[in-house]
Amino acid sequence: MTRLPTTCVEIQERLLAVALDEPGATRGGVTDPVLEAHLQCCPRCRDEHARLRALETAVGAWRRLEPPAADLAGARARLDARLADLSRRTFTYHVVPSPLGNILIARSEHGVSLVEYLGRRRDPARSRLGRLAVEARPDGAELEALGRELLEYLAGRRTRLDWPLDLRLVRSAFHRAVLDATARIPYGAVISYAGLACEVGKPTGVRAVAQALRWNPLPIVVPCHRVIGSGGSLTGYAGNRTDLKERLLTTEGVRVVRVREDLRVLRQAMYVRTPSARFYCLPTCRWLARFPHPERLVLFGAREGAEAAGLRPCTECRPDLRPLPA
């Protein structure tokens, strides 16, 4: 193999460098006078230059080669369909440490889909989210704000969680109706399972209502803790965690007492409203004696709660003038 003169080596390196550092294939001729002079007199470098130009010409033709528009449009349409499917199945989640233990908040692109008590666990693998056939990925940034609002709510500094909701995990139209009615129970109030069954037009479906609340994917946000037994017992919550229900109700101003092993709200120490009334009463109001369905009454732990729900004091028993003892 013949060795190129030093100048030719340099020249060819320069030619190659120009080819490398020009992204496009637009270089037609040589503008460097030193290079040009050398190419005029050196056939070997001239050939090298011609080869590089041939490469650039080929690359130029290659760059202009476009895939058929139909192929590209088809590929995009297929991608869009798969992305839409994936986004429907993708949930982001965030675990918020709270006074009630770790709480998982998961959302889809449409809204919050799941709130779940994890207790001391932080890993959602064995949670309801982990059992769903969805793609779940942790996402602190987006859900942190919701986590902060939840903590404010649990501390009693906030009375509503106005989050966008995705109710896809609700199991049936009936469950949906029960949760809609539950969402209308005002802050600081409780209603019985029987009363809620009447609200959704199924007065005999008390157990079905309890089941719908058991599967509530959005506890706290859809306040199923405000639904209690007709006698005032807290009955169940998140399995057997009536202690969580007690804390939530206490935060909202509802007094809960322990009677032997049972946690109960003090019905006789609560303000009362009949389902359709625009006013609230003392539990001893004579007007209430005429109402035949005590299980359908809505009970408020405090006057402020009733008035925040837009109710006036009853003109007969005057709870505003003779409030219940604190």
């Binding site: 190659l16 190419l39 005029q40 007199c41 001239r46 050939d47 011609a50 080869r51 041939a54 490469l55």
Partner: peptide, 21 residues
Amino acid sequence: FQAVRKLRRGLAGLERPSQEP
């Protein structure tokens, strides 16, 4: 750099006639 070296070698014979000195 390596790609350009290999490709220009592979395209030998397709270059346009170079300018005469």
